[in-house]
Design a protein around this nucleic acid. Sequence first.
DNA 1: CGTTCTTACGTGTGTCGTAACGATC
DNA 2: GATCGTTACGACACACGTAAGAACG
Lengths: 310, 310
Amino acid sequence: MKLRQLRSLVTLVDTRFSVSRAAKELHLVQPAVSQHLKQLEEEVGTRLFVRQGNRLTGLTDAGEKVVHYARRTLAETASILAVGRDHVAEDRGVLRIGTTHTQARYVLPPVIRRFSMAYPEVELQIHQGVPDQLADMAVHDTVDLAICTEALDSHPALKVIPCFRWNRCLVAPTDHPVLSKRPLTLELLSTYPLITYVIGFTGHGRFHDSFARVGLRPRVVLSAADTDVIKTYVREGLGLGIMACLAFEAGRDDDLAMRDLSHLFPWEVTKIAYAREKYLRRFQEEFINIFQAGTQPMARGRKWQASTGP
Amino acid sequence: MKLRQLRSLVTLVDTRFSVSRAAKELHLVQPAVSQHLKQLEEEVGTRLFVRQGNRLTGLTDAGEKVVHYARRTLAETASILAVGRDHVAEDRGVLRIGTTHTQARYVLPPVIRRFSMAYPEVELQIHQGVPDQLADMAVHDTVDLAICTEALDSHPALKVIPCFRWNRCLVAPTDHPVLSKRPLTLELLSTYPLITYVIGFTGHGRFHDSFARVGLRPRVVLSAADTDVIKTYVREGLGLGIMACLAFEAGRDDDLAMRDLSHLFPWEVTKIAYAREKYLRRFQEEFINIFQAGTQPMARGRKWQASTGP
DNA sequence: CGTTCTTACGTGTGTCGTAACGATC
DNA sequence: GATCGTTACGACACACGTAAGAACG
């Protein structure tokens, strides 16, 4: 068995079973990849692929399992190289962060500023995605760290570190009648057209649950994947925005009024996750520390620290 | 990076840093292994070995980490091949069991009889060792399953399945005066010379604790690694034997008298363990089931079942 | 007929073994 | 000087790329 063969296998799967695409991805020619797959299948001794004619279209049961272990194998080898890079140039390398728009736009800037000061030689990459994608990216080692609020806990292969909690606020044009009313209740909110996050994002599930629990149904006229779109349509007068407090920028958003709503909705927790068995480079651990320190810590004094055990 | 190189690395470590021994183990010549190590070190980009002259004597910090991931890598590839063997010949292969003398001698025979009936084509290997060794063997995939009472819980890399509980009994020559006394108490026992298991074996720690808790010190005149030795010296009249009840054979041991002592000592639990991420072949899972069914189950109805998750 | 994968074949790289050299005890 | 390691070199194998052929839409 060769690592190349395993690499071809997982790339084939990741390119949705196109040998040619996999070959391109791997900077090889098709026949080379074909040979890898053939040899691997031969060595394992059982059919790994579902074939239609001579086209590969899926995995057999055995194939699924083999791919699982192949992924792990490659992740381990990546860790080996990471160990080397860490020792050779502790403060040089790439940090690939997967996160959502809201985190990238409103939470990460100060963290990244501090991190870049400490590690000016580290190249930062920010990959955006929806929480489900982010979890997959972390598992498959497409990103080093995934930062978001949802979807991370479900993955048993991820190590998840809760970082800080946040809640929602109401955003409205400064002359909107709702601003004069108080207290702000779910009943009151449900009488207005609302703008909030799309499902699968930043606690959308709990948003609806909070209304449902008291027998209400919010009138969501627009749901957006990112906070800037929400604010834009609030400015347009389309409705009231309900979004993460931390996304309200004091200076830039003074044409909007903000009201805290943490008495109406459960707290959300933003977490950092990474593949459980991944070797974290020094500066990657350090990023986590800076992130926890730079945002309001969940619980003071219980700072996360690196652990070598699983 | 090549798998061969990783194999050479871990073999080097396992042969206590002799390139020649490692080469012999791998059926290669020394220069080949030297080259592997050199190339690997080059690719990782940092010193992995502590050298004295040109002799390798140990690992650097980086080396330790690399070896860790190399071991995992090789284990994953072994799992890949195991998947294949499982699908090609479900009922053929090797089952390597690591266990202690007592288990091998008194617990396993009926289990193995049943297993061999179900899987006559599976070659069974029984490797004996002390619990600590067994744990290591399971972690390093020298055995597929480790079966014993102690030392398994401490290893986070092991998946541990409690199987059945047992306790100790008193064994004495049929004419021994202690047999007429009752109740049997720790005080009483501590007045006689005792023969039991050596430290590190089958609950030896708890054995002493039970006495210590009531301020007594047992007079152990001989401690043995296996039950047969204990019985032998009890027959010699050297002292009273305190051993696992299950090791008393009704027919063969009728020249000895047996008294249950489960009211004096805590219950011990025999467990099966295997490397957490190891791919268990069908018949390996089946062995676990047979073991649980064939011995008194810990808790009826809560039978162990295979899980794919970690 | 273009796309996609396979088979066939040549070339260059790589890996192992033999052999000679160097270091350490 | 015996053991253990590295370096040097040659034979063989292997993996990739090119090119041509076969299956599918």
